[in-house]
Each structure stands twice: as C-alpha cells, then as structure tokens.
Nucleic acid binder design. Structure first.
Length: 689
RNA sequence: GCCGGGAUGGCGGAAUGGCAGACGCAAUGGAUUCAAAAUCCAUCGCCCGCAAGGGCGUCGGGGUUCAAGUCCCCGUCCCGGCACCA
C-alpha cells in the first residue's frame, strides 16, 4: 500500500474534519469576537433550497460550487466573506411532500434538512454553518411575523374581497404570479377565479420604484426584462366617452394612443363590464347576454388563444368622441378585451391597431386613417409614430406632441386625463394552508383587526391531528378552536386569531438579512450587522425565480428601507443565474422516451438493450422516470468531492444549461491526479519533491 | 409578433482586439501485461504533401482596424421569456 497515491476519500475526510473542528469558515460579524471592522466585506449568497424529500441533486450543486469558488477566492484576497446556507422550509412544496408521505411537515422537514446538510458538507462547501437558518423555525418566523407587523402598520397590508385565483386541487388561493395560463405554477393544476376575502400586500404602490431601480442593478438583462414585463408599465390617457341617451353617463377607456382618438370608429368592452347589466330589453340585450354567457363558460386559456377568430356583438349603445360631440360610435362587447386591465374597455382604432383592424374587417366596421406614416408604408395598418391627419385639432402634429395636445384638450373639457397603468396587481398574501407563518393578527368583536403585541410573538402553529387542507376550502387553522380564541391584552378584549397563513415566499423575503445576525433574540438583525454586511454582493440561483421571489424580495426590502430598517434600497447588487443541469435521454423512432437503464452504447450510436432497436440521444431535464437523475453522493463516493466539484465547474459556463455526462468525470479525476503528481512522487516514498 | 441570449473540431468547451481550438471526452498509435482491464506517453480543425512546408478555417454576407471568434451593419438558424395589456 503506497501512502502517496491520490486518495480522494482520505483527503475529503481529513480536511472536512479539520474545517469542522477548527471552525475554519466561521465568519465573525459586528459585535462578535474576532470581528475586524477594517476588513472589506463580501456577501456571496445562494438562493437557499426547499429541502425536498428527494435530496440535493447535481443541479443544485452547480450553483453552490460556483459561489464556493468565489467565496474562497475572496477570502484569499483578504475579504471578510459572508457565505451562509439555510432552508426555505415553509410553503406548498414542503407541505405537499408531507401530505404524500403522511408525515407531519415538521418531521419530514427535519429529515430532509438533515439530509441536505449532510450532502452539502460532503461536497466540502465553505459555508459558515453556525449561521444556518430554517424559515419554519419559530426563532426565525418570529421575525417574519414582526416584519409583517411593520408592513401592516405601515398600511401596506389590507384585506379585500376581490376575484382571486383558487386552486381546487391545492385547496388554496394563489397569487397572480403563481398562476400560469390558468394553471398553478406548482403542480400544474387548474385554477379558477373566485371572489374571496384575502390579505393583500400593496406592491403596486412600489411599481414605479421596482421598475426604475432595475436600471442600476448588475443583473442579467433577461431577468430585468422579465421584471419590466411583469410590472408592465404603459403610459397614455384615460378618456371618458359620453353614452348617447344616458344623461351624463360616460364610458371610460384607457389608451396608450390618445392621438388616435379621431380614428376610434367603435368601442369594445369586456364581457364582465358592468355597463352590460344596464342594457334596455330587446334583441341587442338578448344577444349580449348570450355572448356573455358563452364567454364566461370559456377557460382563460380559450379566451386568450391568439390564433382564435375574433368574436363580439353590438350592444345597441352608442358613445361619442368627447372632442366631437356629434359623432356616433357603436359600443360592442368582445372577449379580446381583458377585464382587469385598464378600465376593461377601450376605444378601437382599426386604422392603427392590428387587433382592432382584424375585428373591424370581420364585422365590417369603418376604418379611418388618422396617422400618416413617415415613409410610404405598405402595411395595411400602420402602428408606428407619424403625423396626425383627419383629426382637426391636432392635424400635422407628430405623435408625441399629438398625444400631449389631445390630453390637454380632454382635460380642459374634464373628459380625460393622462394616466399610467401597470399590469402588476397587488400581491395576494394569504393561503388556506397549514404549513406557513400564521398571521400575527387578531379580529376584535367590534370588527377591527389589530396586530398581536410584539411581546407575544411568535404566533406558533397550533398542533393539529390532521394538518391537511379542508375539503370545503376553509383554512386548516380554523379547526384549532382553542388556538383561535385568545385575548387582546392592550384592550383586554376577547379576540379571534386570523386563520390564514402566509405564502411560502414570506420567509424568503428577508432571509439574506437574518443571515447577517442569525441568533439575535431581540430584533430580526442588528443595525450594525446590516450596515456592515448589506447588500448582498453576489446572489446566485436559478432563472426560475426571475419574477416571483426576486420581485417580492425587492418589494419587502424597499418597504424596510422606507421604514429605516435597512440602509440600502436594493437587496442584491449582482445577480447571476446558473444554468440547468440536464441529462441525456433516449428516444425511439416514434419519439417515445426510453429509460437510460434500457439503453446500450454501440459503436455507431445507441440501441435498446435486448431488441437492438436504434435510439437517438437527446437532452432533457433529469427525471426519475428516465432514470437519469444524478445524486452527488454517488459521484463523491466514487471519485471524491474535488473531482465532483471540478467536473461541475468544468462542464461549461455557469450560466449555460448543459447535460451531465458521467463519462467525462474520470477525465477530471485524472487531471487532479496529474496535479497531485506535480508535488507528490507516488512511486517512491517521497511526499513532496 | 415583441423582448432577452446564442452559433468555434467528431463531442463539451477555451481565448483583456494580438500565435484560434486551453482543459476534458471520444478516436488513433505506442509503453506496460501471458492476455485484458486499469494506468502512462504521444498524435489529434480541414485540404495538398513521404516530409519539410503551404493553403483554408470561429453560422452566411459586407465593413472598421497594422491586427477581428471578439467591434459595427445586414441576414439565417437555434435556445429562453412574454404574449389580444388597448
């Protein structure tokens, strides 16, 4: 037995034990022994994981290894490096897993976090484990509730009876961001709109700042673009059209092109528009009612199918251009108008809007040209900027000036005003589920709602025999009768606790702050720690969080900034998205996917084991069903942590998606062995040359 | 349709405007071995050539520059996001 050979397992064991006993990666912060305020700081953070039951896979690890390389380099350069890890343990994924396994979420969470921690330590990542946090631990959510209280007291949390997304399968309401094409982001279950009284957070008040402050961030352009898109700012005007024969009643629309007012040859309202409930009896009303019924039966997906032919019916009503009172503009209803954006109604300008043009052609409505294109344009419908025409008060003006002038003319007649709209909606913040932070709120007999005293935080979850969601959609916490009934000390009044819980996102809205001072019992974190460590210098995670987590986190951070609780107005200076680790998969001639254990490699390609049927190699997400999921434990057991880490970094640019190729790993191992032999003579018993 | 990002050997990929193809995989030749595996060494963009050497090469077409994979313009294709948002 030659002791000088490269023995990965021995190297891992020796160094990992050394780091543990020496506390090598412990990083003192302000107020702690060994803290040196003169050293520059560097905060490098991973998006902390949901500790799922299936454990850590190589795709998590690629980002963690990347940040670890940066953390180690910065330490060597003399920085005081904050590099922590923890668990985003509340929320639907953790709860769904607990339900599947029949275990209490707290238990399965403990099992899962133990497993994740063990796996991360095996990789030899240089985290300061003394800072580990768990969002489902009362010591942590104490401060999530405390921060929510500040937001509540600041007037940004309110309860409203609004149409919200309800997911029958998950038995809870979901935020707009969590519903994609009418299906839940988690689990892909169908969702329906339902009016329900829910807690909302006033994120729309921050829309402008969330948009503007993207400018100064060192973030991938694609993420900034997605946030801009989601906020969806459009500038234009709200215009009020008097409705013929209705006294002073007016139909309000939003438009980004007030300059095309004189080209509006018809108006369209959404099927949900209240105007439709006031139609006089007659053929038009019958037709409208039939149309509205048909529209409400359609799913959101059917309604927004772009390829679909436009449909609509005339309401029998006429409106007038407020700047041309003699005009008669027919009002239609059509399901291409979205209720919930702008005013749910708009003026149609078929000369300069392709959708309106299509509608006008189908229903033979007049098309008037009111913008002259700067150059001869062959387009049937010119949508760009040009010179106003056929619009007497603004003829000859170029689009921006024409918009300005129209808004002035409308304002003078109190018939319109410049307005900015956003697609961003307020954030639906309550869930009818068990595994989340209870709201620290009390409902008093007089109908008011007050916050639990700071001294009574945290409000812990009641122990329930059955934590599963209720079949009728009521919150599981409503079943904890003893827990609900309590007393509001300040008013010495009986009170009922709120029975909703916060969404899974709540814990991740401030966790980077808790890492700065994770054991503080008197505050979420000390001001000194926040001033020294903030903001996060480098934040690394998947692009899947482009909108939700990153938008919510920025929102909370800005609120905390306004409340004087943080010293920076953005939490993450630099953001980096690691690419997805994919895997090879195999498909037969019919395109059917074949699990990798049924595939054998031939000289000229791949074939199905047994039948010899030729197969094509393709790249897919790792999937249990395809048997191509790679567990870091296996790679480390065979080659050691260094080979594993080297391969993760070696596969290609961290930002790219790339397939895991087990065949390439020995190459990294050999490379390390060659490096080893530069210093260690394996043949002779000489340790260092 | 709009927005964002790409395209370099057989493959994954490397290259502050300064020797294109680092490093790894695969392949080929050799060493070692009774033999094989493993390991080690060498070769490895394409074309002509026994060789020395020469020519051509970073999606296609133009341009800037002493010098372009890299910068600018036009185009093709691929990936990601959004999408009837008035």
């Amino acid at each position: 037995m030659n002791e000088n050979v490269f023995d990965a397992a021995a190297i891992d064991a020796r160094w990992q034990a050394h780091w543990e006993t020496q506390g090598t990666f412990r990083t003192p912060g302000p107020g702690e022994r060994g803290f040196d305020p003169k050293r520059p700081k560097y905060y490098v953070l991973d998006m902390f994981p949901y500790p799922s039951g299936s454990g850590l896979h190589v795709g998590h690890a690629v980002g963690y290894v990347g940040t670890d390389v940066v953390a180690r380099k910065k330490r060597m350069e003399g920085f005081s490096v904050l590099h922590p890890m923890g668990w985003d343990a509340f929320g639907l994924p953790a709860e769904q897993y607990a339900i599947q396994t029949g275990k209490h979420p707290r238990e399965s969470n403990r099992t899962n976090t133990d497993n994740f921690r063990r796996q991360l330590k095996k990789i030899g990542l240089s985290y300061d484990w003394s800072r580990e946090i768990d969002t489902s631990n009362p010591k942590y959510f104490h401060w999530t509730q405390w921060l929510f209280k500040r937001i509540f007291e600041h007037g940004l949390a309110y309860r409203a009876d609004v149409p919200v997304w309800w997911c029958e399968e998950l038995k809870t309401v979901l935020a707009n961001e969590e519903v994609i094409n009418g299906r839940s982001e988690r689990g892909n279950y169908p969702c329906v709109r339902r009016p329900l009284k829910q807690w909302m957070l006033g994120i729309t008040k921050y829309a402008e700042r969330l948009l503007d402050d993207l400018e100064g961030l060192d973030w991938p352009e694609s993420i900034k673009a997605q946030q801009r898109e989601w906020i969806g700012k459009s500038e234009g005007a709200e215009i009020h059209f008097p409705i013929a024969g209705r006294g002073g009643e007016r139909l309000s629309v939003f438009t980004t092109r007030p300059d095309t007012l004189f080209g509006a040859t018809f108006m369209v309202v959404a099927p949900e528009h209240p105007l439709l409930k006031t139609l006089p009896a007659g053929a038009a009303r019958d037709a409208v009612e039939a149309y509205v019924r048909a529209a409400s039966a359609k799913s959101d997906l059917e309604r927004t199918d772009l390829a679909k032919e436009k449909s609509g019916v005339f309401t029998g009503l006429y409106a007038a251009n407020p700047l041309d009172p003699r005009s008669r503009i027919p009002v239609w209803v059509a399901d291409y108008v979205l209720w919930g954006y702008g005013t749910g109604a708009f003026m149609s300008v078929p000369g300069h809007d392709v959708r309106d043009h299509e509608f006008a052609q189908k229903f033979d409505l007049p098309i008037v040209e009111v913008v002259r294109a700067p150059e001869a344009s062959k387009e049937a419908c010119f949508t760009g900027e040009g010179t106003a025409m056929n619009s007497s008060p603004i003829d000859g003006l170029f689009t921006p000036q024409a918009k300005q002038k129209i808004i002035e003319l409308l304002a003078a007649k109190q018939a319109g005003v410049g307005r900015t709209t956003y697609r961003l909606r307020d954030w639906l913040f309550s869930r009818q589920r068990y595994w989340g932070e209870p709201f620290p709120l009390l409902h008093l007999p007089d109908g008011t709602t007050v916050a639990v005293d700071d001294g009574d935080l945290p409000v812990e979850l009641p122990e329930l025999a059955d934590f599963k969601p209720s079949a009728d959609g009521s919150a599981p916490l409503a079943r904890a009768k003893d827990w609900i009934r309590t007393t509001h000390k300040a008013s010495n009044s009986p009170a009922l606790r709120d029975t909703d819980t916060m969404p899974g996102w709540a814990g991740s809205c401030w966790y980077w702050l808790r890492f700065m001072d994770p054991h503080n019992d008197s505050a979420p974190y000390s001001k000194a720690a926040e001033r020294y460590w903030g903001p996060v210098d480098l934040y690394v995670g998947g692009a899947g969080h482009a909108v939700m987590h990153l938008l919510y986190a920025r929102f909370w951070h800005k609120v905390l900034f306004d409340l004087g609780l943080v010293s920076t107005n953005e939490p993450f200076k630099r953001l980096f998205n690691q690419g997805m680790i994919t895997a090879f998969a195999y498909e037969d001639a019919s395109g059917r996917l074949i699990a990798s254990d049924e595939v054998e490699t031939k000289a000229d390609g791949y074939a199905r084991r047994g039948s010899g049927e030729p197969l094509k190699q393709i790249v897919t997400k790792m999937a249990k069903s395809l048997k191509n999921v790679v567990n870091p434990d296996d790679v480390i057991a065979e080659h050691g942590a260094d080979t594993f880490r080297l391969y993760e970094m070696f596969m290609g640019p961290l930002a790219d998606s790339k397939p895991w190729n087990t065949r390439d790993i020995p190459g990294c191992r050999r490379f390390l062995e060659r490096v080893w032999r530069l210093f260690v003579d394996e043949k002779n018993d000489v340790a260092i040359r």
